[in-house]
Design a protein around this nucleic acid. Structure first.
Lengths: 168, 168
DNA sequence: CATTGTTACTATGATTTTCATAGTAATATG
DNA sequence: CATATTACTATGAAAATCATAGTAACAATG
């Protein structure tokens, strides 16, 4: 399971340390990425992250315990759940957005170019990488943007889904 | 050691996944926190994070390999190094700042209040928790701010240092 | 010149987590 | 009745983590 013993978050007042006890884990962040991408099913999260089912199950359980995610029944018989972000989960967006900007800028070769482009619905222009919209200067919020993947990155995602399905 | 096999960052175009191969680890983020707090010595990082020396050594080594940190000699005989953020490391600040804001807002009880307060040097007013300055509306940069800890949080930090020193 | 202190680590072994692979359970569909 | 779908759980080997202790290279003190 994922750690939680002795409630380490309460052992410090540092907000960064506290946040890290919740999201300080690679798989957890990738699960959140999928939820922000509006993929709500277990198998979608598994396929796109590439994690094992135990990793996903453990992370979703902990995210639910920590209040970032809720399970929503979308089918009885058999009982099936979708995973959705809570307000606390959605509030994590600025971190995700900043992380994505850092990754685009510093973790890729120039020839790769950007993998995602956000459009700011409020002004209709590209949002850019900063905390405020490149086009209009307003602070960016998740609900005011649409994300679009480059064809190359979209193809990678599709291939992941196909590869996952092929093993079923 | 910290993982790196097969260069997993190159296996996806996702900027979030790539970033996470570098900073998707609790100790790594806490090490960066200390560097942003201008603590550059090994023992300072060890004392304030509470990690074991191997954890710190491994993280610093990987951060250096990944280009976020450089070692700087501050003493020959015996050879001693300080750890400093590179441009790539400093560029991580928006993520750290957003993470801190999320932690302050969502990972603490209301009675705790904020643990840190940033002042925007450009306008002299409190910067707040958002991506832009609460006082003047300008996007916030690391170099334009000073951070101050609340007395309570500062006392916690001092206690950590004392406790560390007491063991040697 | 021997002892203690400072700084930055490395070594060890028990415990915990992760990973790959496989399997189960409940139900729908053909 | 056989196969498909979805969401997991079981297992065991490999790797990472943790607490604790120790080392190395010098500097300062008595």
């Amino acid at each position: 399971m994922v750690k939680s013993k002795g409630n380490p978050a309460d052992q410090t007042l540092c907000p960064v340390a506290r946040a890290e006890t919740v999201v300080g884990d690679r798989w957890t962040v990738l699960v959140l990425r999928e939820l922000f991408a509006r993929n709500h099913r277990f198998e979608e999260i598994q396929a796109y992250t590439g994690a094992t089912p135990q990793m996903i199950a453990a992370r979703l359980k902990k995210l639910e315990t920590d209040g970032l995610v809720t399970r929503r029944v979308y089918n009885k018989h058999p009982l099936r759940h979708e995973y959705h972000l809570t307000e606390k989960g959605e509030a994590f967006f600025p971190v995700m957005f900043a992380l994505r900007a850092w990754g685009e800028t510093w973790c890729k070769s120039p020839r790769d170019g950007l993998s995602m482009n956000y459009t700011h619905l409020t002004c209709g222009k590209p949002a850019g990488l900063g905390p405020v919209c490149q086009g209009c200067g307003e602070p960016l919020q998740w609900t005011d943007m649409v994300a679009e993947r480059t064809p190359k990155y979209q193809r990678e995602r599709d291939a992941r889904w196909e590869a996952f399905k092929a093993t079923r």
